[in-house]
């Protein structure tokens, strides 16, 4: 529909003090919000809870999510405003991906898929898939 589509990378940190259930809801809310604008979601890569390098709003841990999508640029300001308002989003960053970034992303994604497959093959429980 949109004439000028770009690929975007959105990373955000969710307050991990709230329950796992709430985190899950928030992540899916962000994802639906983006997809409802007509964007094509390429991937939602959840890193999970990690220790922050410095405290943000007195929190020491955060739940990291990286999502990748294709859409027109007009939704970005609205999206960022929504993220800004939500108190449970500690940080966010949207980047428009240029050709080099897309190439890099595709390579790293292939690597991740491979690793996930390798982890699946191993008898030990995979950590990436539980959530």
């Amino acid at each position: 529909m949109a004439t000028n589509e770009n690929t975007y990378e959105l990373s955000y940190i969710v307050n991990s003090v709230i329950s796992d259930e709430q985190v899950k809801n928030l992540v899916s809310r962000v994802t639906t919000y983006v997809s409802e604008t007509g964007a094509e979601i390429l991937e939602v890569d959840e890193w999970g809870a990690r220790r922050l390098s410095y405290p943000i709003q007195k929190k020491r841990n955060g739940y990291y999510v990286n999502m990748y999508f294709r859409s027109s640029g007009t939704i970005i300001t609205r999206l960022e405003r929504a993220l800004e308002i939500n108190d449970n989003i500690l940080r966010y960053m949207t980047l428009r991906m240029d050709a080099k970034m897309i190439r890099h992303y595709e390579e790293s994604r292939a690597r991740r898929v491979e690793e996930a497959a390798a982890a699946e093959a191993e008898p030990e429980p995979a950590t990436e898939t539980d959530k």
């Binding site: 940190i13 922050l52 390098s53 410095y54 940080r91 980047l95």
Partner: peptide, 13 residues
């Protein structure tokens, strides 16, 4: 600078 913003590496350590 991006990594610092996302608290992946510290501003000062």
């Amino acid at each position: 600078k991006r990594a610092r913003h996302m608290a992946m590496i510290p501003f000062v350590a």
